[in-house]
Design a protein around this nucleic acid. Structure first.
Length: 291
DNA sequence: AGACGTACCTGACCGC
DNA sequence: TGCGGTCAGGTACGTC
């Protein structure tokens, strides 16, 4: 599922039940995800208050009042669902496909986080490529997961000057370069394809051969596609849902992703979207207008 | 150093 | 109905 816009959608959904709230109970239902849970995971979280919930790249980071941060990655199939819980259990309407009594008991519900919002947050991840770890907050930047990350694409730091420098001399195709989290953090397969289409750049073009004239359109396209997708609540293909169970709808706005054989979305182009494989991953693009 | 293939895991879908 | 093959939004690691 989750690239930057999906993770940001989850962050915005979790914020009201996490920020300024306390974990009342934490339960893991297996010993590991992609990596083992840290020792004492449940007790180190229980009773702790969340000062802030932020996002870095595709990671959610909850800063705790203990000096540690809970770091969450959703992998390919991770999902967070918020259920009303606590006295009365009356909050709002349940839009989920599971009854209240069954919430958190699905085969792939791996972590249950209860807060005094009151709310129950269920982490579901059938492929288990996600992770949850605890890191000292003041050591986050030097942690191996974070150390090499490139800039946030929506920040001012990510601009034409930066991108020119980052792509200089790179012999890898621009598609692969933009997927590299060390170059720019948060893009994934969908939004790289969509941004390259918006900027009319072929995914096969070598990074160092992206022309100076197309740098500005590319930076603009990346920022715009991410902003548009966040506004739409992300893209729901298989696993991604908002924390209230509703679907994101940016997939309805895909210009090329998963559209092989269909006509190019660009007015007057007349081309046909093609699927190729690069570095083992599907790339969708229009050979007619992307050069 | 950097680029590539492969592994991790489960489920959905397609053709036979 | 079943079986094998392929594919999936990500990242880490070994190898050249």
């Amino acid at each position: 599922m989750p690239e930057l816009p999906e993770v940001e959608t989850v962050r915005l959904g979790l914020k009201p039940v996490l920020e300024g709230r306390q974990f009342t109970q934490v339960k893991t239902r297996r010993g590991d995800l992609r990596v083992p849970f840290p020792s004492g995971f449940e007790t180190r979280l229980s009773g702790r208050k969340v000062n802030r919930l932020r996002r870095r790249a595709k990671y959610l980071v909850a800063d705790l009042d203990s000096g540690e941060s809970l770091v969450i990655h959703l992998g390919m199939s991770g999902r967070m669902t918020v259920y009303a819980s606590g006295a009365g259990r009356k909050i709002g309407s349940y839009v989920h496909d599971v009854g209240e009594a069954d919430a958190g008991h699905g085969k792939h519900d791996h972590v249950i986080l209860e807060t005094d919002a009151p709310a129950m947050i269920v982490f579901t991840d059938h492929r288990r490529f996600g992770l949850m770890i605890l890191v000292e907050t003041d050591q986050l930047d030097s942690h191996p997961l974070f150390k090499g990350l490139g800039p946030e694409p929506l920040s001012d730091e990510f601009d034409v000057t930066f991108l020119k420098k980052a792509l200089k001399g790179k012999k890898t195709p621009i598609k692969s370069a933009l997927l590299d989290q060390r170059v720019i953090a948060g893009l994934g397969n969908i939004y790289v394809c969509e941004a390259l289409w918006r900027a009319k750049i072929s995914p096969k073009r070598l990074a160092k051969r992206v022309t100076p004239q197309t740098m500005a359109p590319l930076v603009k396209a990346i920022k715009a596609v991410l902003a548009d997708a966040i506004k739409a609540g992300g893209s729901s293909l298989r696993d991604h849902k908002r924390v209230d169970g509703e679907l994101g709808y940016f997939q309805k706005s895909f210009a090329v992703y998963d559209r092989a054989g269909k006509s190019c979305s660009r007015k007057d182009c007349g081309g046909t979207v093609k699927r190729i494989v690069q570095a083992g991953r599907s790339t969708f693009y229009c050979p007619t207008c992307q050069k």
